[in-house]
Structure formats: structure tokens, C-alpha cells
């Protein structure tokens, strides 16, 4: 029938159809265009912005030092603490050992429940709790000396709480522990997202549970862990602005606010703050893109290599 040469003439050819019109889109473009123009107009004509002062405060030396130490350095330290402690907590939480699991639960409960601002203020006041300094040594050593009537102690090192928990260290520990509680939940979601068959395959190859976790489960969990961790990193950058509560003075927002209250140039100073946080955020988003690409290897649509003879088992790889 269709092999009949006469009907071949009538067979439909290339499609050249008029696309559907979207008048709504053009209306939206017009409305938004007007709003953007109004906003841009305000940015450039409103005297209160004082752009030269914005640029000036952004590159002011104490502000830059605050950016480096209080914002970037503390973010880095806090995220390192947060990720390592958080992943450990997640593994503990999923452990068959009920003690570990419960300890992790209590930790997460506490640090997720207390606001960061309150936590940082507490860090700054911990010196009150340890007025004689913090001793590191054998616990309850005084009981031994009281019982035996001997003199002495078994403490090797005394730390001054007022120097440890104040300033950048205290701020990084406070933010890091708070972050750990959130990271623990993210890592737990990542670990449980890995197919049970993966663990079984590793076990059948003679891998111990800890090796299976490190070599097989965690690398696959990273795919699920990385995107929300990017969010956490972004939040952390912004939450360093709370460090003034510890107090840490070498911090971006603290320094900018100080300039603002000294010069009464509130709008330029706050604009400078927004711009700095936006610049950091943009750089981080860029970095996250590459990190996600790295951990998506072996998933989703293939990027290279020859096409297989048949369709791959779609149930095996989840689309990216």
C-alpha cells in the first residue's frame, strides 16, 4: 500500500507550522521592564546611595580584613567542623549501636534547637563556667587523691576558657557545631538514599562495614549531599554576620556597621554589605556547579563513550 509509488507523492513532508502565540509573555516583559527601569532610575538618581562612598567602604582596609578573617576564614573553619562532625553524627545516627545513635540524636536535637545568635553569645560567656580554666587530664582525679590522702593532680594542660572560646576560635566552634547538626541530617539523607544492594554487593566482596561506608556508600551519598551543602555554605557565609555576638570584631558586617554608625552613611554602608555578600555568593554558586558535575559521574545521561548496542537499564542510573 504505502509501497505504491503513486502514493509516495502524497506522503506528508517537512512540517512548517505557525507556532502558538504567547501574548501573555509580552505583557509580562512590558510590566517587568517598567519596574526594572524605575528601580534602576532610583539607584542612580537617589542621592542617599552615594555610590563613591559605597566603593570606598567596600575597599576600606578594616572592612577587607573583616571580610578575610571574620567572614571567609570563619566560614571555612565552621564548614570543616560542620561537615566532619556532621558526617560522623550521621554515621553514628545510623549505627546499629543504640548508644551512638542516641548520642547523635541528642546532639542534633540541641544544636538544631538553639538559635545561632544565642549559641554564639553563649560561646563568648563560657569563661564564666570555667573560671579556673579548663583542665585536660584524668577525669575525677581528685577522688583518687582525696581517698589516698596524697597530694597532687593528674592534669596535664590547663586552657583558659576566656581565650579559647572568645574570638575567631569560639565563633568557628559555635557556628561549626550548629552546622554539624544540619549537616548530620543532610548526610543521613544522602546515606539512606544509596541503594541497599550496594552495601550487599560490597559485603559479598568481603568488604567490612566501615570500608563499605567509606569506599562505596559515602561517595555515592555525596551526589545527594553536595547540593544542600552548597545551600548550607551560603547560609554560613551570611551567618558569620552574627559573629559580633561572641564578640568577633574582625568581621565584615561588624566593621561596616561601625563605619555606618560613625559616619551616619547608613544606606551606602548597607549597600556595601549586600554587594560583598552577593559577590561571595556568586563565586560559590559557580564552584558548586563544578562540584556537582564531579559527583554526578556515572549517573544520568552518558556524556562520552560509544553508544551501547541496546538501551541501558534505566532502573540503574537515576537521571541527574
Amino acid at each position: 500500500m504505502s509501497s505504491d509509488p503513486s502514493s509516495r507523492e502524497a506522503r506528508p513532508g517537512k512540517i512548517d507550522a505557525t507556532p502558538v502565540k504567547h501574548p501573555g509573555r509580552w505583557v509580562a516583559v512590558a510590566v517587568i521592564g517598567v519596574l526594572v527601569a524605575m528601580f534602576a532610575n532610583m539607584l542612580f538618581t537617589n542621592e542617599a546611595f552615594e555610590w563613591p562612598i559605597v566603593v570606598d567602604t567596600m575597599t576600606n582596609e578594616p572592612v577587607l580584613r573583616g571580610l578575610l578573617i571574620g567572614t571567609l576564614w570563619v566560614t571555612l573553619l565552621a564548614m570543616i567542623i560542620g561537615v566532619t562532625v556532621g558526617v560522623t553524627l550521621a554515621v553514628m545516627r545510623l549505627s546499629p549501636n543504640p548508644v551512638l545513635s542516641y548520642v547523635a540524636f541528642v546532639f542534633i536535637w540541641f544544636f538544631r534547637g538553639v538559635p545561632r545568635l544565642v549559641l554564639l553569645t553563649i560561646m563568648g560567656s563560657l569563661g564564666v563556667l570555667f573560671q579556673g580554666g579548663m583542665d585536660i587530664g584524668i577525669p575525677f582525679d581528685y577522688l583518687f587523691f582525696n581517698l589516698t590522702g596524697l597530694d597532687g593532680d593528674m592534669r596535664f594542660l590547663t586552657l583558659d576558657a576566656n581565650t579559647v572560646f572568645v574570638g575567631v576560635t569560639g565563633g568557628a566552634i559555635g557556628l561549626g557545631l550548629s552546622e554539624a547538626a544540619y549537616m548530620a541530617e543532610i548526610a543521613r539523607a544522602g546515606i539512606t538514599s544509596v541503594d541497599e544492594g550496594q552495601r550487599e554487593a560490597a559485603a559479598a566482596l568481603g568488604m567490612t562495614p566501615s570500608k563499605t561506608m567509606r569506599r562505596i556508600v559515602l561517595p555515592q551519598a555525596m551526589r545527594v549531599i553536595v547540593p544542600p551543602t552548597g545551600n548550607e555554605l551560603m547560609s554560613m557565609v551570611k551567618d558569620t554576620s552574627l559573629l559580633g555576638a561572641v564578640p568577633v570584631t574582625n568581621e565584615l558586617f561588624f566593621q561596616l556597621e561601625a563605619i555606618g554608625s560613625r559616619t551616619f552613611k547608613i544606606v551606602p554602608v548597607l549597600t556595601a554589605a549586600c554587594l560583598w555578600y552577593l559577590i561571595i555568593g556568586s563565586v560559590l554558586m559557580f564552584g558548586q556547579y563544578f562540584l556537582e558535575k564531579r559527583f554526578n559521574r556515572g549517573y544520568g545521561t552518558r556524556v562520552s563513550g560509544p553508544a551501547p548496542a541496546t538501551d541501558p537499564e534505566s532502573s540503574q542510573g537515576t537521571p541527574a
Binding site: E200, Y299, G317
Partner: peptide, 10 residues
């Protein structure tokens, strides 16, 4: 295994 269980990240 029935469902192969190859390590997808390797």
C-alpha cells in the same frame, strides 16, 4: 545479584 549492583560511581 539479580539487579547486578555494580558500583555506579566507578
Amino acid at each position: 545479584f539479580q539487579k547486578f549492583n555494580l558500583f555506579p560511581h566507578k
